[in-house]
Amino acid sequence: MIATPVNPKVFEPMGQLFVSLPHCATLGFQYLGADGRKPVLKVDWREDLVGNPATGVVHGGIITSLVDTTSAVAVTAHLERFETIATLDLRIDYLKAATPGKAIYCRAECYRLASQVAFTRAVCYHDNPDDPIAHGVATFMRESSPLPMLQEPKA
């Protein structure tokens, strides 16, 4: 059985909120929904996202932003209520070059939510998560700011 988000009223708006943040919107990130507690984001190939002009391969920084953002959304699938989180560290393994012209997807999961820190892992792929182009692990600090990224909906 696939675990459902701890609080869909937190998780569902957070996916949309994260892709609407200015840098994510600039990169064209799309929130495709979630497989249980594992959100999936997509970014289409674009000329201005290229890192190697000789090959047209997307810049590694796009993968970094995609992993960071999708992993943050994955953390919110485990939250009871809205809180601000901040990335503490992030590691990306570049398993193979992305294919120019193809969209990149990222699926992330939070595999441990501790009282102060959340631990995540993510894969980036074109067609199949079992054939990844990059793998990312990250940790997030919880309650990183008293200023909420989203307000509780008014009852």
Partner: peptide
């Protein structure tokens, strides 16, 4: 630049953008 923001409340630069900037610098 406003387009590089990742938290509009604080506001703060997007963590992924900082990563991209550093990776680009290293290369």
């Amino acid at each position: 630049h406003e387009r590089n923001v990742g938290n509009t409340v604080l506001p703060a630069l997007h963590g992924g953008l900082i990563g991209g900037f550093l990776e680009n610098a290293a290369m």
